Simulated scan of single mutants.
Amino acid sequence: MGLFLFASLLEIGGGYLIWKVLRDHKGKIFGLVGALILFSYGIIMTLQPANFGKVYATYGGIFVVSSIVWGYWIDKKKPDRFEIIGSIIVLVGVAVMFYFPR
């Protein structure tokens, strides 16, 4: 779970910096740092012990929830009830995919 959370921080943070370059015309250094952070995200995801498809499906759910939290803390956008309900549904799906025995 720690690797998933760290990976989401890297992916969202790197994407955010590139967003700032393209949307807010920040300096090229923001873009370079964002690209390096996104590259680091790709490496972190390879450290997961499960197979690729299972890891990325599960990570997708963690990413959704992390994005909502990022929006709240960084962009100061309070999630509405549908974002919260959707996040709960996604987390239940993650639990089913990753933790239920086969």
Rank of each mutant, 00 (worst) to 15 (best):
R81P: 01
L10T: 05
L38F: 07
A35D: 03
G71M: 04
G15L: 03
P101H: 02
G86C: 07
L10M: 11
Q48H: 15
F82L: 13
V21E: 13
L3P: 00
I68T: 09
I44D: 00
G60A: 13
F100I: 15
V21F: 12
T46R: 02
L22P: 01
M45K: 00
I12H: 03
I43K: 07
G13W: 01
F63W: 12
I12P: 00
V92D: 05
V94P: 10
I85W: 11
F98L: 15
G15H: 01
L38S: 12
V92N: 04
F39T: 14
S67D: 04
V55S: 06
D75I: 01
M45I: 14
L22Q: 08
I44L: 05
N51Y: 14
I88W: 03
L5A: 14
A50R: 12
S8Q: 08
A50G: 02
G34H: 12
L5R: 11
R23T: 08
G86L: 05
V33D: 03
Y99N: 13
T46D: 06
G93Y: 08
L3Q: 02
M1N: 09
I29H: 09
L38G: 10
I62Q: 09
Y56E: 06
I29R: 12
V92Q: 08
R81Q: 07
I84F: 07
V90S: 08
R81Y: 13
R102S: 02
I44G: 00
P101Y: 06
P79S: 08
V94I: 06
I44S: 09
K28G: 14
F82T: 11
V21W: 11
D24L: 15
I12Q: 03
V90P: 00
K76Y: 07
L9A: 14
E11Q: 12
L36W: 14
L22G: 07
G27Y: 05
G61A: 08
K76R: 11
L22S: 13
G15W: 00
Y56S: 07
S67K: 01
I44F: 01
V69N: 04
V90A: 05
V65I: 09
L91A: 12
A35T: 07
I74D: 05
V90Y: 02
